[in-house]
Design a binder for these strands. Structure first.
Lengths: 136, 136
DNA sequence: ACTTGGTACTTGCAAAATGCAAGCGCAAAG
DNA sequence: CTTTGCGCTTGCATTTTGCAAGTACCAAGT
């Protein structure tokens, strides 16, 4: 953890993941079932390898992601959400809802429509699902 | 608006306010009743003048904030939330909740406690209040 | 044993963003 | 007609980002 600018909880949150990339990695783990370096690289936003590497290290240090070696391949690592990381779900959902509402070219797909219909239910449903995947 | 990295609504949102400062300005307007350049400068996170200036311009361009000259002083400007800006409230609330939950040194004050008790009610209450201040 | 491919990075360098201090232009007040 | 307040802009150093290339390790094929 670097420095925190104040003791405001909003500011503290932004100190950790207030950038253009961290929450996209979280999105990939949370909603797209991605869990490895190479999978993150394939996302359409095209994150650079060094940025990905540094963000994964930061998210791990912040205990938002956990890292373990794959059981079948010792040179592969698996990233998973911790409880702290899973609790970012409402933020991700709100970001999606706002983005979809104000960008015509961001069509709501299945999840987006469910959020529009009943946001709280979607959060409950996904939180339940994430619970099973949580690592310390 | 610069470029957007993909048509994912989360990514689109981050393209606009995915940095360490934009949402702190929104917080100041939304929760602290601030509405001028000099008031934003006084916040404890100590934003630099040039950064503040560029962020205000970006938020205005994104139609999240509106800018008008003060009725009593032609050299003063008043920044207010638009509907699009006010709709960021749930994101701000979730950022506050997560930050307070995971940082011991970020004590929940009045609002933080109300959020913990009944998040949806807080959002409703504040959204109602913001409605009266909205500008196009 | 030796090559090929997959995975996860690191490194070097250029470009962009941030942070800091100082200065500027205008309007209102004294 | 000077001073104060407000909202910036500018110049410059530092930091972060982005891009391309290279490295290291493991595993599987031949």
């Amino acid at each position: 953890m670097s420095k925190q600018r104040s003791d405001c909880p909003i500011s503290c949150s932004l100190d950790i993941f207030g950038d253009k990339w961290s929450l996209l990695i979280i999105r990939d783990v949370m909603l797209r079932g991605k869990c490895s370096y190479s999978e993150f690289l394939k996302s359409e936003e095209k994150i650079a390898t060094n940025i990905l590497s540094s963000r994964l290290a930061l998210l791990e240090a912040a205990q938002i992601l956990s890292k373990e070696t794959a059981p079948d391949n010792r040179s592969k690592f698996i990233y998973r959400l911790t409880q702290k990381g899973a609790d970012l779900l409402p933020i991700i959902v709100e970001l999606m809802d706002w983005g979809a509402r104000y960008h015509d070219h961001c069509p709501r797909r299945e999840l987006g429509k469910k959020i529009k219909k009943n946001k709280a239910a979607v959060i409950d449903e996904y939180m339940q699902r994430l619970k099973e995947q949580i690592r310390s």
